[in-house]
């Protein structure tokens, strides 16, 4: 009846609802106690409303993480959708924090919410950025380390979207291997 009402603006729904988590390293507390859910969103517009209003990753304190995971998947190995999975891992030099890190993280987020991995997108659980004094890291987590075709397609797509040159090799590590490692070296299950 009210002809003066503007046409309702429809937000653009995402395929999944996503949850953004924040980790701050407080040494007196357990890892679980240091992880907090910030918020969830399921539209393009709500993603930007969040992204534009939180601290950019490169300005976080050392020891902090952001994690973006599909709603219902916790950002930890123990979640049943992660425990048989693994991660594509990209490590950065200290200098890259100020030149490339935020661009790479945003591109990773856009790959996730845009479901950029075609038929293999369902294998993607989420992504994590670690801000660390010794070197920052971005990791994309997938649900099953044995899904070779999915893992490789996701890795190649990520590498292309981030614009990494061919000579840069990134590795995929199974969480089971990371969790049981004795030293700091974890064997790559795949590389692209």
């Amino acid at each position: 009846q009210d002809m003066s009402m503007p046409t309702r603006y429809m937000k653009h729904p995402l395929q999944s609802r996503w949850a953004l988590w924040f980790y701050k390293n407080v040494k007196s507390k357990t890892w679980h106690a240091n992880v907090r859910l910030i918020t969830k969103f399921d539209t393009v517009e709500d993603f930007w409303a969040l992204y534009n209003n939180i601290q950019i990753a490169s300005k976080l304190m050392s020891g902090c993480d952001y994690s973006l995971f599909r709603d219902g998947i916790e950002p930890m190995w123990e979640d049943y959708r992660n425990k048989c999975g693994g991660r594509w891992l990209i490590t950065f030099s200290k200098q890259q924090r100020h030149t490339e890190l935020d661009r790479f993280w945003l591109e990773t987020l856009l790959c996730l919410i845009g479901e950029s991995f075609g038929d293999y997108s369902d294998d993607v659980c989420g992504a994590v950025i670690n801000i660390r004094a010794k070197g920052d890291k971005i990791a994309l987590w997938t649900t099953h380390a044995e899904n070779r075709d999915a893992v490789l397609h996701i890795g190649r797509t990520l590498k292309e979207r981030l614009g990494l040159p061919a000579k840069i090799v990134i590795g995929y590590q199974a969480h089971a291997d990371t969790a049981t490692k004795s030293g700091s070296i974890v064997n790559n299950k795949f590389v692209v």
């Binding site: 937000k11 395929q15 393009v44 517009e45 930007w48 856009l110 950029s116 075609g118």
Partner: peptide, 20 residues
């Protein structure tokens, strides 16, 4: 079908005025 959005589409919404 699956809702897939390419980067240019997503980036186009970064600075859209907030809707009520």
């Amino acid at each position: 079908g699956k809702k897939q959005y390419d980067r240019e589409f997503l980036l186009g919404f970064q600075f859209m005025p907030a809707c009520i």
